[in-house]
């Protein structure tokens, strides 16, 4: 296990060494969203009975920050290593493809959780948020970060430039997170857009994560969890197959 552990530790150290950029910066950005949206909408929107809008917003923003940072961790590390050639340092040693996968996904989960915890704790300054089902919350947090960690690996394997990598981030990841119900409940949407939202796997992550806090959700948390788990398994399988084949890594 030493090889896997070392790669995991190296990835943790990589983001920890630049924590202003990888932890503090996303926490501050997310808090700005919280500040602005809660100021504008606090008096106008009531999503769940007895839950004010700021409190409603906090779990969604926490999950959004976790997803985006979990994705950023594996994708930025791998695309940088590919572009500057330092990827050889992990391709030359006897690391198995599953060790590669596990280390990068675990490091993504770690960064997602650290950033999520930072946003959550800072959010308490703005509103008190209950925690009705902590295990549900944790299950969605772990699966969500792991899913995005795997997506980060796939994207960085595919991308052949920073431009392509940034396209995935800006045209796929950001829209999927913004349109997943972070800022609203999908119950407020028209039937058409509510139906469309159901095809966005990030919706189930936000909805299930929020259920962990409030005990209320747009869809059954068990159904959401099964969708998310299926997506995670499918993404993991895809990533493992790509890594095993050496896709764009071993020419």
């Amino acid at each position: 296990m030493t090889g896997l552990w070392t790669l995991f530790y190296k990835e943790i150290l990589r983001f920890w060494k630049v924590s202003l950029q990888t932890i503090l910066s996303p926490v501050v950005t997310t808090l700005l969203y919280l500040l602005i949206f809660s100021h504008v909408l606090e008096e106008h929107v009531l999503v769940y009975p007895g839950v004010n809008y700021t409190a409603f917003l906090i779990p969604g923003l926490v999950m959004m920050a976790m997803l985006q940072n979990a994705f950023a961790n594996s994708s930025s590390s791998l695309i940088q290593a590919k572009m500057n050639g330092s990827i050889v340092f992990i391709l030359l040693p006897p690391l198995a493809y599953w060790e590669f996968f596990t280390a990068y996904v675990a490091a993504s989960v770690a960064r997602g959780l650290v950033v999520g915890l930072g946003v959550g704790l800072a959010g308490l300054w703005f509103a008190a948020v209950p925690l009705v089902h902590p295990l549900w919350m944790l299950a969605f947090a772990l699966l969500g970060s792991a899913m995005l960690g795997a997506m980060g690996i796939i994207s960085s394997l595919w991308a052949e430039s920073y431009d392509q990598m940034s396209a995935v981030q800006n045209f796929i990841i950001v829209p999927l997170t913004f349109l997943s119900g972070v800022f609203y409940s999908t119950a407020s949407l028209s039937p058409l857009w509510r139906g469309v939202s159901r095809f966005n796997p990030f919706f189930y992550l936000i909805d299930g994560f929020r259920y962990g806090f409030f005990g209320a959700s747009d869809v059954s948390p068990l159904f959401g969890l099964s969708i998310v788990a299926t997506c995670f398994l499918a993404l993991s399988l895809t990533t493992l197959l790509l890594l095993k084949s050496g896709y764009k890594l071993r020419k």
């Binding site: 030493t2 090889g3 070392t6 790669l7 190296k10 340092f89 040693p93 006897p94």
Partner: peptide, 10 residues
Amino acid sequence: QFQSGYFNLR
């Protein structure tokens, strides 16, 4: 140290 770890050298 990382390179050693990748080769399972504790």
